[in-house]
Design a protein around this nucleic acid. Structure first.
Lengths: 350, 350
DNA sequence: CTGTTAGCGCATTCAG
DNA sequence: CTGAATGCGCTAACAG
């Protein structure tokens, strides 16, 4: 592949047409079907012929055309991945996990980032169908994409959340358990005025985190009040303002549970801006553990999710279903998060 | 597309074969080519026929097959994106920028993460060729991928770095200028013992950052010594240890310039571990401004790069070349970074 | 304006 | 063991 020669041959203007199997066959002085067998490795081909064909192929820099192969009815080798915000480190890591498994298995990953727009998600889904993606991994902004794909019979594995659409596998975190552990940790430290900040409760992910928060309070015999729940998803003002007003209005709070990394950032920034001591005046816990949370002082106590693994596992599940021809009962796999205790949580100071 | 009905029709076992153009044509009672024209929007088709075909298509849930279209000689609609580490926020944001532009233009992004492995990068490049990608965006770990693609005549735009391979466009940051500005900032504050920590000098990116560092010292009439340069790329021990030893051996340092976000994290952690006051004892500047750098206390002074825009711009450049049929002289676009001064830099304390 | 014909590159019959 | 023929789904000539 290095002492190719084709590069030196030069192609002054415009590309010379890609070498095709016919070119390889001609060069090797045999028929196209034999060439196909020789390169593909199936069927009987005399060893010396195979050698000759291989040589011709590399000399010509032959690369098989996947569209032809796909059209012929074989697999496209493509898997779709739809995420709702690649700039969010959570999704980036998820994507990395997915990509790692998939490319190791010889698949190509087609990436779509819907940027929080369900319309883009649906377009992405249609594109996957058009490409004959063998399967799709989904962590999108709306459920239209999921419906569309399931309807078209494309194997789907949801990651991090479930749309409720029948017929797709899923890999999710035990969100209720994780957030319950986070809040119980605060309760054990002696906190009684614990707020939760969240920005999305239309998916099960957010709802379960909220449920875990409530369950922990209930189990501890602490009162549960709406006044301690800030849902930025339903708020009108910009998130930052909303958080500021929320904290300003509730001076008696001694702890805040941030239900994901985005709100954790908002809360952290606002507490810093207000000059509130952490954990002296307010303890903070985050669901989802990002790099910055161990860079800041004090480090943030956080519910750590195996994000990369979740992506990888989802990809495996999908590949399994693809291998089985898309059939079988749908599975949901639940991964366990773990609480990482750092300096941002302590006994209430007052 | 919503009141489809095909979903309700039900497909008990296995998928029913995807509807093809032939099915649509039959249902509409016309020929395949007319159906093609009606749906594709080219050529003349009577309005009422067009309506009928459209209806038939949606009823059948018809989605055109890209492999067939591609094979027929039209564009694949695919663009490759190769990055060296998606878990690094820098690349994630780059990918987001690329994806945004490309998907807005109706292209599909095939993502490959080489995880620092040049072999994987080369495999990715071959996959792009096999898929007939119309072009490829490259921020890979080695230069083999670039060579391979250029040799095969695939339009290539490099991002963030240049391999030196002839015949590809590039969008890069003015690294020398950026790092010079960073170090000049330190010099102006009165620092004379300024170290640089870097982990990669085989690409122009790292070399230019080093050059900027040296240029700033030279311009200020300060001595340049190897003792103040830590290149983790050539070190034997684990990076963390190497940084620890470096700092421990050089108590006279008053400032550290971290040449990218990865080493910035290492340096920051190590300074924290050593209990050195920032900026009291040591000032710190980073090249590349990540979210955590404004979360920590004091905030990190950093050279901010327009990462998302760089990805987006590279995608535009590539699309431009694709539109021109791949011809024309190759361009390199240089984007300017800017220094964001925060609390991590101050006059030397002693 | 519409239908018929042909071929993109490949893998797979089926004969030899 | 090898070659000739066929068709995947689509679109672009060309006739009608």
């Amino acid at each position: 592949m290095s002492n190719d020669g084709t590069a030196r041959t030069g192609t002054p203007r415009g590309r010379r047409p890609r070498a095709t199997l016919r070119d390889v066959a001609e060069r090797a002085g045999i028929s196209r079907s034999t060439a196909s067998r020789a390169l593909g490795g199936h069927g009987y081909v005399a060893e010396h012929i195979r050698e000759r064909v291989r040589a011709a192929a590399t000399e010509l820099g032959y690369v098989p055309d996947v569209s032809a192969r796909t059209l012929k009815g074989r697999s496209s080798g493509v898997v779709g991945l739809l995420v709702s915000d690649l700039r969010n480190q959570f999704y980036a890591e998820l994507a990395a996990g997915v990509e790692h498994t998939l490319s190791s298995a010889g698949y190509q990953v087609v990436l779509v980032d819907d940027h929080g727009d369900a319309e883009r998600a649906a377009d992405g889904a249609r594109a996957f169908v058009a490409m004959r993606a063998e399967g799709v991994l989904l962590a999108p902004s709306g459920r239209t994409a999921t419906e569309l794909l399931v309807e078209h019979g494309t194997p789907v594995t949801e990651v991090d959340r479930r749309s409720g659409v029948r017929g797709c596998d899923a890999v999710v975190i035990d969100n209720e358990h994780g957030s319950r552990a986070a809040v119980e940790h605060l309760v054990e430290l002696g906190h009684e005025q614990i707020a939760v900040v969240i920005d999305e409760t239309r998916w099960d992910t957010g709802r379960h985190r909220l449920r875990g928060y409530r369950a922990a309070l209930l189990a501890a015999g602490l009162p549960r009040t709406r006044r301690h729940v800030l849902d930025l998803g339903t708020a009108e003002r910009p998130a930052q303002e909303e958080v500021a007003a929320f904290l300003a209005d509730r001076p008696s709070l001694t702890a805040v549970f941030a239900a994901n990394n985005v709100v954790a950032e908002l809360v952290w920034q606002e507490l810093k801006r207000r000059g509130e001591a952490v954990p002296g005046e307010v303890s903070v816990v985050s669901f989802d553990d990002l790099a910055w949370m161990r860079m800041v002082e004090p480090g943030l106590t956080a519910v750590r999710q195996p994000v990369f693994d979740m992506g990888a596992r989802a990809a495996e599940l999908l590949l399994g279903r693809v291998a089985r021809g898309g059939g079988g009962r749908s599975t949901t796999e639940v991964l366990q998060p773990s609480l990482v205790v750092r300096g941002s949580t302590a006994e209430p100071g007052r």
